[in-house]
Amino acid sequence: MKEYFRLPKWDISVTGIVFLVMLFIPNIIWSKMQPDGYEEASKHENKVLLALERTGEVLVSVLVLTDRRLDRLSASPRTGYLLTALVLMVLYELYWIKYFRSSHTLADMYSDYCGFPLAGASLPVFAVLLLGVYACNVFLIAAAIILGIGHIGIHLMHRKEI
């Protein structure tokens, strides 16, 4: 348990870069293919959830980019957390491919995928949470929880509106 409260080895993390690229590329493409009605729906977002989402995004981005413990690969039971996080991110990519091939509606945006509710929000949050467990980084775990409350909360609100 003490390992979770040790400060990370600060440096650029290749694993963190890979995860952020997997996260950002679909979002950049999405910015050009937003669903009809998204702009109007986003005007009514809960300000507390939005603040939590933005705070979580910044914290997660900084922490996955700078924690070199994410790059240690060894044959241990904890490697399963890293592999599961990677599988979740691959599912996230597949979710976006499904969305980009769809008619780009709000229902498409907030759909489930492979049994994951609100896949566009939940898959990356769970992946980051698992990265935090893998790296024994309590700060990354906390950042993932903050991001999850905001990001998943906002997606839930949008989904209820449609």
Rank of each mutant, 00 (worst) to 15 (best):
Y95G: 00
A127M: 06
R68Q: 14
E3H: 11
A119I: 06
K32P: 00
F100M: 10
K2V: 13
I146S: 00
N46Q: 08
N46K: 09
S122N: 12
V18G: 04
S13I: 10
K9V: 15
I25F: 09
Y95R: 09
H151E: 02
L49G: 09
N137F: 10
A127S: 15
R159D: 08
G56T: 09
M33F: 14
L106N: 07
E3G: 09
F139C: 00
E53N: 14
E45T: 14
F139R: 13
Y113F: 15
A121T: 03
I17M: 15
P26G: 06
V90K: 01
M1C: 00
M109V: 02
D112I: 04
F116C: 05
P117K: 13
Y95P: 00
A142R: 04
V64L: 08
I141P: 04
R69Q: 11
P124D: 06
L86G: 13
C114G: 00
P124K: 02
E93Y: 01
E161W: 00
F19V: 12
I12R: 06
A41D: 05
I97S: 04
Y99E: 06
Y134Q: 09
E39M: 13
M33C: 09
A135M: 08
V125N: 02
F19P: 01
A85Y: 02
L147E: 07
Y95L: 08
T55G: 02
R159G: 10
W10V: 15
V87E: 02
T105Y: 05
N137D: 15
S111C: 07
G37A: 11
L70K: 03
E161M: 11
